[in-house]
């Protein structure tokens, strides 16, 4: 693959990471999702900016990534989940999401836009991640493995071709976003 050399060149990848991050941060700030009030508004279900940004990213990203995959240009990178890891971890994350009012990416964006509380939040996220690293050996033997999900992807779970799921999910997302607009959210 022509991209292999680029992908394995560590120095280029560090520069690419920075460039991708700059574009991501620029977009997040323009989208308003680096603001505490917008994120809390989403969790209070009074402001739907976050879900609009996320679902349109998923819609566009999914179609492009699966199209490139069909042409053999990209590989997928996803993880297997379990009740103990995904559900429990997800709920802990959610609680932190509401209390901090930023997420790991938008916290960095909020700092860039001048929010100093987000900087303290970033320190907290690193502390929490570090604490997890210490608990990891114990958790990995127990809770993280409990209730393993039966499949890695939704197409595998349903036993249908990925292309069909892409079309259905694209229609569902479009329909949901259309409904949000029609209902005036």
């Amino acid at each position: 693959m022509a991209f292999e050399q680029l992908r394995s060149d560590k120095r280029t990848q560090v520069v690419l990471g920075l460039l991708f991050g700059i574009v991501f941060g620029f977009l997040l700030q323009k989208g308003g999702v680096t603001a505490y009030g917008v994120i809390i508004g989403q969790l209070l279900l009074t402001d739907h900016t976050v879900i609009k940004v996320m679902l349109s990213a998923v819609l566009v990203g999914m179609i492009g990534v699966y199209t490139m995959k069909a042409f053999g240009l990209v590989r997928l990178h996803y993880q297997e989940g379990s009740v103990g890891a995904t559900v429990i971890g997800g709920l802990i994350f959610g609680a932190g999401f509401a209390i901090l009012g930023y997420c790991p990416g938008t916290a960095a964006g909020a700092v860039g836009a001048g929010a100093l509380d987000a900087l303290v939040g970033m320190v907290g996220i690193a502390l929490g991640a570090g604490a997890f690293a210490h608990l990891y050996p114990r958790l990995e033997r127990g809770i993280l493995r409990s209730g393993a999900f039966p499949a890695g992807t939704i197409p595998e779970l349903l036993g249908v071709r990925p292309g069909i799921v892409v079309v259905v999910v694209a229609l569902l997302i479009t329909g949901f976003l259309y409904l949000l607009e029609v209902l005036g959210f």
Binding site: G89, G90, L91, I92, F93, G94, A95, G96, F97, A98, I99, L100, G101, C103, P104, A107, V120, G121, M122, V123, G124, I125, A126, L127, G128, A129, G130, A131, F132, A133, Y136
Partner: peptide
């Protein structure tokens, strides 16, 4: 909130 989030994310 950050501590909870960092732990939950990992």
């Amino acid at each position: 909130g950050g501590i909870l989030m960092g732990m939950g994310a990992r």
